[in-house]
Design a protein around this nucleic acid. Structure first.
Lengths: 120, 120
DNA sequence: TACCAAGCTGGAGCAGCTCTAGGTCAAGCG
DNA sequence: CGCTTGACCTAGAGCTGCTCCAGCTTGGTA
C-alpha cells in the first residue's frame, strides 16, 4: 500500500507517518525497487492503533515504549496489554474532563442568556 | 490572589498563566506595589474557563479571538456565545474519538487474550 | 519525449508550553 | 539589625510533536 493510501486509512498525515518511522515507532517498512515505501496490512493496522492512541493523548515516549514491545514480538503481550489497560483508564479521565467542560459551557451559556435578557 | 493560588485554582501552571498574559489572553492584571500580580475573582473565573477550553482542545488562535471579545465587554456576548456553542460541538467530536479508541482497545485486548490462550 | 503527480530526504519552522538564569522583595529568625 | 528563605519577577532558551519547504527521483500518461 502506498503512503498516501496508508495516510487516509490511518488518519495520520504522510509527514507524520514518515516522522513516526524515523522515531522507530514502526517496524521496518518494505520499499519498492524505486525506493518508495510499501505498507503491509499489518503496518496499516498498527498505524491505525497508534493514530487512535495519539489522538486520545498518549505521549510520544509511551508510544515509543509500546512500539518497542511490539517489535519484540509475542513474548511482550502482557506488557502491551498493560499499556492498553492503562490507556483505557486515561480515556475515562479525558471523558470526565470533557464532561466538566460541557457543564461549564452550559453554565456560561445560561449566564450569557440571562445577561442579554437583562439588556433588552 | 497570588499567582500560585490562581494556578492551583485554575489548573494551569504559573508559567502558562504568565504566558497567556503575554499573549493578551487575559485582561490587564493588577499588580501589588512590589510588582507582583494580584488576580481578582473575575480573573480566576476567566482562567478556569480558558483552562477548560484549552484542555479540551481549543486552539490558541481561537482563544485569542475569544479573549478579544471578552475584553470588548458586553456588546460581544452573542459572538462569545457562538464560540462556546461551537466548542460544545467540538466536545462531542472528542467524545466520539474517545469512544472509538475505547472500542479499538477492547478489541485489541480481546485479541491479546486469545493469543495468550493459544500460547498456553 | 516531455510532462506531471507522487514519492523521497534533510532540515527549517511553528504551536504551546516548560525550564533556567539571574534578579527583587518581604517576612521570619537569631 | 543583618541574614536567610522563598515566592515572585523578566527575558530568553529548550522541548515536543508535528508541519512545511526545497530540491531531487521516478512512474505513468499524451
Amino acid at each position: 500500500m502506498r503512503i498516501s493510501e496508508t495516510a487516509s486509512a490511518s488518519g495520520l498525515s504522510i509527514d507524520t507517518i514518515r516522522y513516526y518511522e524515523k522515531l522507530h515507532l514502526l517496524p521496518k517498512i518494505a520499499r519498492g525497487r524505486d525506493g518508495r515505501r510499501d505498507f503491509s496490512a499489518e503496518n496499516v493496522e498498527w498505524l491505525i492503533l497508534l493514530s487512535s492512541l495519539r489522538e486520545t493523548g498518549m505521549p510520544m515516549e509511551r508510544m515509543r515504549y509500546f512500539a518497542q514491545l511490539y517489535q519484540r514480538g509475542n513474548e511482550t503481550l502482557s506488557e502491551r496489554k498493560a499499556v492498553l489497560v492503562d490507556h483505557a483508564v486515561h480515556l475515562d479521565m479525558r471523558r470526565a474532563a470533557l464532561d466538566r467542560c460541557s457543564e461549564l459551557l452550559a453554565y456560561k451559556l445560561k449566564r450569557y442568556d440571562e445577561m442579554t435578557e437583562d439588556l433588552s
